[in-house]
């Protein structure tokens, strides 16, 4: 299975601040267009959905197609109104889900 996803976000933020979150997950993102040495098509295997939620509420999500590069990098923003936990989920074509969690605190 893929390595642990890499996520970069600040440890704490002021209330109402908009922070930037960068994520990267290792994945081949096999497009289904390539052929192997025998000329047979290599079956498609990609991450088709990414979702991020904060304290159970959706923040950002995206549906991905084979035109996303290998090891998909996704950067987006989130507004922080309270301390809490971000949950990230990457869904594979085969149904497996890679998940990760990050906590963020409010600046005193």
């Amino acid at each position: 299975m893929a390595d642990k996803p890499r996520i970069k976000l600040p440890k704490e933020a002021a209330k109402g601040e908009v922070i930037q979150i960068k994520t990267l997950v290792s994945h081949v993102m096999e497009s289904g267009q390539r052929k192997d040495a025998q000329g047979k098509a290599i079956p498609r295997k990609i991450i088709n959905k990414f979702a991020c939620e904060f304290n159970g509420k959706p923040v950002f999500s995206c549906a991905l197609e084979p035109a996303i590069s290998a090891n998909p990098y996704i950067q987006f923003d989130a507004r922080i109104d309270e301390a809490g936990t971000f949950k990230f989920a990457w869904t594979d074509d085969d149904g497996s889900v890679i998940t990760a969690e990050e906590k963020i605190a409010l600046k005193a």
Partner: peptide, 16 residues
């Protein structure tokens, strides 16, 4: 790709 934002995104900004 189809990106879906919410008011909690704060900014409609993304990079892929």
């Amino acid at each position: 790709a189809t990106l879906s934002f919410t008011p909690m995104s704060g900014k409609a900004e993304a990079a892929i």
